[in-house]
Design a binder for these strands. Sequence first.
DNA 1: GTCTATATCCAGATAGAC
DNA 2: GTCTATCTGGATATAGAC
Lengths: 205, 205
Amino acid sequence: MARNSDQNQRVREERRERILTGALELFARNGLAGTKISDIAKHTAMSNGLVYHYFPSKEDIFIELIRTAFERLILACGYLESLTLPPHRKLLHAMDELVHTFRTSPTACLYHMLIAQATAAENIPAGARDILEQNRNIPYATMARVIAQGQEQGTIRPGKPDDLAFFFWVNINGIAQHQAMYGETAQCPDLAPLHRLYLTSKELP
Amino acid sequence: MARNSDQNQRVREERRERILTGALELFARNGLAGTKISDIAKHTAMSNGLVYHYFPSKEDIFIELIRTAFERLILACGYLESLTLPPHRKLLHAMDELVHTFRTSPTACLYHMLIAQATAAENIPAGARDILEQNRNIPYATMARVIAQGQEQGTIRPGKPDDLAFFFWVNINGIAQHQAMYGETAQCPDLAPLHRLYLTSKELP
DNA sequence: GTCTATATCCAGATAGAC
DNA sequence: GTCTATCTGGATATAGAC
């Protein structure tokens, strides 16, 4: 019956989601090879077999997470550029918003760590590698564009936009990592010092 | 005979060194779990058995590398503080020197990545975890001291020394990671923009 | 000191009962 | 949809030949 299969559908979705969330945490910290199916099963209070009922393999879970990680990141980049804000405000907004998300949702940090893990590892599945190669550059390019616009308007300091974008993401990733690991004990510092990296003196308080 | 055993000793040392160097590269990128003994053997052109002749287990290689990583880092910290340089010069010197080392010796980046890997992973051997816990804070504390001294002298911008030290190491680690991964293709940006993070206006060009 | 062969164990994945 | 039992491959580590 339709009603029954609707419910099943919802259960299925909820299970898949639980597996993905649990696996994200483990993959982000321990990597693909360092995470066992039994870890994921334990972490989500399922049996080994049930995990395989929802995903054909460990690597498929990994690939799906990488896909989602970039989906979210690229969505955020598009959203940022669509805002009707002066470029230097966009930059500050991105910084604050990202770090705020890190604080409130651990998941957000974990996606960043997952990408870092995957980028470093040599033995990730080909599907994941492809997604990585194809998207890796998008956040850098987005931020470089914003920075270049700000430089034209004289609100962002001169310098190669690519370089400043590089420092932007290095900092964001470092903060994500710190927050994911010590978030509960040590608060991440206030970001105000970082503003000096990007803004011209007339925009600084 | 003494001469013969001397030679053996030297061979032994050279072999151990080769294993450690090869393993560092693999552990730093793929983690402990993601690195197989056979990978290390292949990477150093030895047989599996020979690796076990020099180290009792994979984990022992890992622990020894973690030990060395901190040894080097802490040595560098001590050296930095011993320099007869004004504090803000020490900070710039540390930054330039670290990044210069990253460029000239890939090994240096790999040690930083190894520490990052080990910090993130949950399943590292207890011995490695201990070293990590005991030393993790030393580089931060060193840099915070230098920064505090610079603030007293008015050459380094105000702000919590711990926070600035945090940003310092976040950037260094990010650069190390970038250099280790894309070092051959993409040059790491010039560090001048980062100076603004730390120096008061009168010290800036 | 170095290699090959092998024992042992554990993790990924499947089958089939409920 | 969920679990337990099981197959299978591969990785750690050891033994023993050279």
